[in-house]
Design a protein around this nucleic acid. Structure first.
Length: 262
DNA sequence: ATGGCAGAACATTTCTGA
């Protein structure tokens, strides 16, 4: 059995105690992190090494940043999506058996239509998603097994948010963004959806407005896999209880367990 | 969307996030 978990930690340094505790409890083989808000200089490589993990990161000061933590050797690490080196939102590595792990933090894109500067955010999001789609589809065409996990910043279905009408105009939900998400995940299976079929299963609760106690959540995080891999997955989980921990992220981890060695 | 958060940094305020 092997386990892969993805988590938008909203600062790896601020989350270090909660993260190390989670790792020691769940012992994932691979851990995909988003929004680490750290660079090579201040990423807690040593603490995570002590917890049993080697880390590869695509870091950035203050914002964004992604990482893959692993108990096993990784190879062929890629630190950026071609053409988008200005924002660290993509990291990819291959396991010994050739499974491609991709960790993404999709741009938020909001607000979508207030002024030209903000419009650029939505445009950037759509261009970024299209580029990721090209990359994913190339991997699938070349016969690779792929695990794509992360914070996708897309409300795929109305039932993925506590009050869909509040988000109709949001860059999380507008039709072109939903379409871009469908395009980039074509040929992949969302195992979080498949094994957590219940509607109103969320992975994010805003820090503001008492979102957690009111269960005003959104499903923004996912793990997508190629069909051959999907057949070997025995469970998938949303670690909802993590949201109740003091000093935690506004997102909770999502994970899968497979009978295969990855 | 914020009954008003949380994190980072060119920091006592501004930005980003969703």
């Amino acid at each position: 059995m092997q386990k892969i978990i993805s988590w938008n930690v909203a600062s790896v340094r601020a989350r270090l105690p909660v993260l190390v505790d989670f790792l020691s409890r769940e012992k994932p083989d691979y851990m995909l992190l988003q929004e680490i808000k750290a660079t090579e200089e201040n990423f807690p490589f040593f603490d995570l090494q002590m917890a049993g993990y080697t880390s590869v990161i695509s870091g950035q000061k203050s914002y964004n940043g992604v990482a893959i933590l692993s108990r096993w050797p990784l190879q062929f690490v890629r630190l950026e999506l071609a053409g988008f080196a200005d924002q660290a939102r993509f990291i990819q590595a291959e396991t010994k058996s050739g499974v491609v792990l991709i960790c993404v933090y999709v741009p938020n894109g909001n607000p979508p239509d207030k002024n030209p500067t903000d419009m650029e955010r939505l445009t950037y999001k759509l261009r970024w998603m299209a580029a990721l789609g090209d990359h994913i589809q190339n991997l699938i065409c070349s016969g690779k097994e792929v695990v794509l996990g992360g914070d996708f910043n897309v409300i795929e279905r109305d039932s993925d948010v506590y009050q869909p009408d509040l988000f109709r105009e949001s860059a999380l939900m507008i039709p072109p963004v939903r379409q871009a998400y469908a395009d980039l995940t074509k040929g992949l299976i969302n195992v979080i959806r498949q094994y957590n079929a219940a509607e109103n299963s969320y992975s994010f609760w805003d820090f503001q407005g008492g979102a957690w106690p009111k269960n005003n959540g959104i499903l923004l995080d996912a793990l997508w896999v190629t069909p051959a891999l999907a057949r070997h997955i025995v469970r998938a989980d949303i670690y909802k209880s993590v949201r109740g921990i003091k000093g935690t992220s506004d997102h909770v981890p999502v994970g899968l367990t497979t009978t295969d060695l990855l």
